[in-house]
Simulated scan of single mutants.
Amino acid sequence: MASPTRISRRTFAAGSLVAVTGFPNIVRGQTREIFVGGPASPGLTDILFPVIERKHNMKILFEGTNSLINLEKIRANKARPTMTVTMMDDPVLVLAEREKVIRKLPADITNLADVPAAAKPRDAMWANWCQPMCSFSYNSRALPQGLASYNDAWDRKFRERIIMISMRITQAVAPLVAAASYATKKPLDQALKEWGAGIERLKELRPNVIQVSSNAPQAQQLLETGECDLYMAPDSRTTLFRKAQGAPVDQGLPKEGVLAMPAGVALVEGGPNQDLGIAFINEMLNPETQALIARTFWSKPTNAKTVLPPGITFPELIALDWEYFADNRNAMIERFEREVSSR
């Protein structure tokens, strides 16, 4: 079975129609083929998806982008969906549910029975296929011991040595919540609603920030080549995947704790080949596939029957109120871009 196909405008420029939104015009008569939109995480198209393709005799067309852009494209195709499955973070899936562009996961996804309620939100409108760790990543040559605390990033020795991720990307909540926790003395799981104080604290970090980036692969490359010492904050899907490949990076385990990123997967309402989408999601939640996910993405599996591969453990992860985050994200973005990332 061929490896998953990445969709790009250039790829489809000859001989295929491409919607202005960037999604291919999938022919509905085709069988054993689905289009999946999800994160640009390494390991999806070269490790995980080929396993699913071979096992279920299907072809996966995939486009990797961040969750907000993914949602924008689903909205644009609402009248005639081309995507079958979407992989987005919970706060964006909250919006997708409200806009009725995703459908409740059916009982045919039998592995849902072994997923705890917290990992299948809103009565199983979607499921978390894993829980990546999120804190910060660092160049392990520059910082062999890492950082003991998020607050160490404010040290003057890191002047112009930090890349921050854009608030338009969900992982940006990690430095925001850490800053709010420091400012209010509340633990991370109680600090999200104090995000205004977090913005004020992040303003003090500006001298140490060389750039605020929405280009995660580029920021990762700059971290690996030593152009910066800290990257705040990708999650373990990227950081520890690249570490396993020999890159000089590692995941921070600060004393304040590590956040659980809610990596969700859902069926697009009205999308083609729903039976294949159901098989895809059920396989993502299969205990054996969950073990592969844990090993590949260094992310906590959500199926309770999963046996972790030898040598892989996870700290206690901190969950946030993602509905609150979804409701307040635009305000967070506006203040962050005006007061933190602007020069």
Rank of each mutant, 00 (worst) to 15 (best):
A263F: 13
G252A: 14
D275T: 12
L276W: 01
V249C: 08
Q251V: 04
G264T: 07
P287L: 06
E283T: 15
I278Y: 08
P248T: 08
G264N: 05
D250K: 11
G252C: 10
N286D: 15
P272V: 04
E256M: 10
N282G: 10
G264R: 00
K255A: 15
G271V: 02
V249M: 06
V265D: 00
L253N: 11
D250G: 12
K255Y: 08
Q245T: 07
P254F: 08
A260L: 11
Q274A: 15
A279V: 12
L253A: 12
I278A: 09
A279H: 01
A279P: 01
V265W: 01
G246A: 11
G271P: 01
Q245K: 15
L285K: 01
V268W: 04
G271C: 08
E256T: 13
V268K: 01
F280V: 05
M261Y: 10
E288G: 01
Q274D: 13
V258A: 03
L267F: 12
V268N: 02
P287Y: 07
Q245P: 01
N282Q: 11
G252H: 03
E288D: 15
E256Y: 09
I278L: 13
G271L: 04
P254Y: 08
A263E: 07
A263L: 13
N282E: 09
P248M: 12
A279W: 00
G246T: 09
P287T: 09
A266D: 05
N286T: 10
N273E: 12
T289Q: 07
E269L: 14
A260K: 06
Q245A: 15
Q274I: 13
E288A: 15
G277A: 09
L253C: 07
L285S: 02
T289G: 01
A266H: 06
G270M: 11
G246I: 08
P248R: 08
G277M: 04
A279C: 05
Q251I: 13
A247H: 05
